[in-house]
């Protein structure tokens, strides 16, 4: 669309804005291209609606400023796209990006997305238990105290405790991490169905 502009300053402004948009909207595919066409038409209409000042580059600048930074209005749609991908592929990268964009988009999904982040932190806890067992075998696992209470995870004082699982705590912690990840990621789909 820059062929419509004679002024190099306008071409520069336009290209800078839409190259940033293209970079951010790449994961959206066809939807991103449709969105770009909508925005291009909007900017042209916005320039036309401004009073003639004799400075078209300034008019374009105003139109782009009114449109807002691409990252600000793309957060919600990128969050939806990545979460939708995550629920199908179970990719941790898609999960991370989906939650990142959803949280930054704010709105009604902010609280739910934050709770999902907390849920994923549990997976890290299980992973730490599994990975630290070989190094601190006597202090990591599931322990029963003399009074019958149960302690799980990394326990400082285990001298009088009886270890319940032994080396089984590694596969069990890993299985729990995997199960939590699968359930949370499956549940993420509900997040994009709620506003």
């Amino acid at each position: 669309m820059t062929e419509l502009f004679d002024d190099p300053a306008m071409v520069k402004l336009w290209n800078a804005y839409f190259s940033e948009f293209d970079k951010l909207s790449a994961p959206l595919g066809d939807e991103g291209r449709e969105l770009r066409s909508d925005l291009e038409r909007h900017v042209m209409e916005s320039i036309g609606a401004q009073p003639a000042t004799g400075n078209p580059a300034q008019q374009l600048k105003v139109a782009l400023k009114r449109l807002g930074r691409p990252i600000d209005y793309l957060h919600p749609i990128l969050g939806e796209r990545y979460i939708s991908r995550a629920t199908h592929t179970y990719s941790p990268v898609a999960v991370g990006k989906g939650l990142f964009h959803t949280i930054l988009a704010g709105g009604g999904r902010l609280l739910a997305a934050s709770l999902f982040c907390l849920g994923y932190l549990f997976i890290a806890v299980f992973a730490v238990i599994a990975l630290s067992k070989p190094f601190w075998a006597d202090n990591v696992g599931l322990f029963r105290a003399p009074d019958g209470t149960i302690a799980a995870g990394i326990v400082a004082e285990t001298a009088e405790h009886q270890e319940v699982l032994g080396w089984w705590s590694i596969p069990i912690a890993l299985a729990l991490a995997m199960l939590t990840y699968l359930l949370l990621t499956k549940g993420l789909g509900r997040l994009i169905r709620t506003q």
Partner: peptide
Amino acid sequence: NVPEGTIYPLLLR
């Protein structure tokens, strides 16, 4: 008064 670009992703949805 929201950034005008906010409207278009919503229209798509």
